[in-house]
Write a protein that binds this DNA or RNA. Structure first.
Lengths: 110, 110
DNA sequence: AATTATTATCGTAATATTGCGATATAATAA
DNA sequence: TTATTATATCGCAATATTACGATAATAATT
């Protein structure tokens, strides 16, 4: 095992879980915050900034790219990364839909 | 390796990542949705509902409990689980703080 | 052409996660 | 007491994730 049984869950649940999962690592949070903060697109700066090996940063960027939350465009010999605004806003909505549910404490747990 | 280098990140980043991570599995999403939907506290129902082994459900519940997002109270021979409203609202705020940042597309990625 | 700079990919080691059967624990019911 | 019900925990196997060095690929610079 070690294999998630995605087939027994609804597409929406799997999708939401994948979206949460990619944000479930401090390096990827830090990368996103850096990109958002600088507004400019960066790349190698992250290696200096975060203190992880270049291969590791590249791998995290790949995961973020795979979900579509960031995109990279080649600029000379470097690659410029930035937030994909459309995907970001879609994620925002999905997360809001999840978190804005009315959560009422039931009678058994006070 | 296989070990996240939490020491190089800010507490806030680690905390946020842990919160996202626990939601990064469809079974835990399904469990939360079930608890929220039924409003009543359940327990063994999840095994019938989700189609995962009892040991597996119990493990996922434990992870959710560890983050504080749900709580369980003993009721006779069963355990009643429900959302911890305070923790839920705190999570809501943290996630909103993260997602409500202004995200501007930079000049290099159009 | 050779060097340098930037990023991606490969291979690998260490650790984490997922899932489940078996078993333990605790409370109720017969 | 014995059985039943509900949940937790242990131990294990399979797979996934994290991290990094080495290396490849590409583009600019000298």
């Amino acid at each position: 095992m070690g294999l998630t049984k995605t087939e027994i869950f609804a597409d929406e649940q799997n999708k939401l879980a994948v979206a949460f999962k990619v944000l479930g690592h401090p390096a990827r949070i830090a990368i996103l915050q850096y990109i958002i903060d600088k507004k400019a697109c960066i790349c190698n700066d992250l290696v200096d900034e975060l203190g992880l090996a270049q291969a590791t940063i590249s791998q995290h960027l790949k995961e973020l790219k795979n979900t579509g939350i960031i995109q990279g465009t080649i600029e000379g010999k470097s690659v410029c990364y930035c937030i994909n605004e459309a995907v970001w806003k879609q994620m925002q909505q999905e997360f809001n839909a999840f978190f804005n549910q009315d959560v009422n404490i039931s009678s058994c747990c006070k």
